[in-house]
């Protein structure tokens, strides 16, 4: 969740600090102190991350319901996934959310950041106000408010009817729940916007001046200066927002009452994983789902980093 821009600019995860100056031989006091200081993290890493990951990899190949001991079923869980209509539904729902919601959110974030960047004096307050939804958007409170606004005869229904839209709330209409969820995501454009804004401030003003002298218009400046100069930040935001979008859970859970309804239209991947794992107690099946998610997110991350070389520009970086 927190690659810095600088990491993105390097194109790889940050190397361990001080690798270059590292001596061949370690002082034994340092070694002892190093492991002593690292103990909390090491324990957490082994007990809460690596151990559970291996356990879930094992469980993914078993039938396990918490009441009886796991029984080995080979690849059955994985093959079952692809003949499970609800699983396929959850993949579709999540894919639409990621592929449609994330770009809209990022475009909104970039547009508002550029707008704010026009007038620096106003930034402080607006930046904070626009950021606020990112802080509370995933809370139960906001999910409840969202549902209340989009329900039958609710505010959005009334406004829609005023503009001639057919009557009816969005919450009960499987075709409208996804737009509703995407609006909730777009409403939280503040976090990527703040990052865009920080990136925009670093674009040297001389570049724009030089382009003006050459007679370049606004569009040309945007395409030739802003986008390339901003590409590391775009890369960073795109990666983070995509990974986050895969993991949306709270709002879908609250709005659908934990069912992914109506008619499976809010059955997000993580929600279905929760239903399988913690409602039906099919822990093996849910673990298989979790590992498929890890693989997909891993592949997407790798593809992002691979392709980034061709479109992310690191001007001014010595590489």
């Amino acid at each position: 969740m927190t690659l810095t821009r600088d990491d993105a600019q390097r194109g790889t995860p940050a190397p361990a600090p001080g690798t270059r100056t590292q001596q061949k031989r370690w002082r034994s006091a340092d070694v002892r102190a190093g492991y002593a200081f690292l103990t909390p993290w090491l324990l957490g890493f082994l007990l809460l991350t690596v151990g559970p990951m291996l356990a879930s990899l094992y469980l993914a190949f078993t039938d396990y319901n918490l009441f009886r001991s796991p029984s080995w079923v080979g690849f059955d869980n994985f093959t079952a996934l692809f003949s499970d209509p609800r699983y396929i539904q959850s993949v579709k729902v999540t894919a639409v959310y990621v592929l449609v919601g994330t770009p809209i959110k990022l475009i909104a974030a970039l547009a508002v950041a550029m707008l704010l960047n026009l007038k620096h004096s106003a930034q402080g307050a607006y930046r904070s106000i626009f950021y606020a939804p990112s802080l509370i958007g995933a809370s139960v409170s906001i999910a409840i408010v969202w549902k209340a606004m989009f329900i039958d005869d609710g505010m959005v229904d009334k406004i829609g009817q005023f503009f001639g839209a057919p009557a009816g709330g969005w919450v009960g209409n499987p075709d409208m729940t996804m737009p509703m969820m995407i609006l909730l995501a777009v409403w939280q454009f503040g976090a990527p916007m703040v990052i865009f804004l920080a990136g925009l401030k670093q674009v040297p003003a001389e570049l724009y001046e030089a382009a003006s002298v050459d007679g370049a218009g606004a569009v040309r400046k945007f395409l030739k200066i802003t986008l390339p100069m901003l590409s590391p930040v775009i890369f960073f935001n795109l990666l983070l927002e995509t990974i986050n979008a895969f993991q949306v859970f709270n709002s879908a859970f609250i709005i659908s009452g934990g069912t992914g309804g109506p008619a499976g239209s809010t059955l997000f991947y993580t929600l279905y994983l929760y239903i399988r794992g913690f409602t039906d107690f099919q822990m093996g099946y849910a673990s298989a789902m979790a590992w498929v998610l890890v693989l997909v997110v891993g592949i997407i991350t790798a593809v992002f980093f691979k392709t980034s070389k061709s479109w992310v520009h690191y001007s001014g970086e010595t590489r």
Binding site: D7, P17, Q247, T270
Partner: peptide, 19 residues
Amino acid sequence: FFSLMIGTLLLPFHVVIIP
């Protein structure tokens, strides 16, 4: 260890909640 820690930043945490 540092690389592994960076790796966990991007790991979907759902893979560990069940175990």
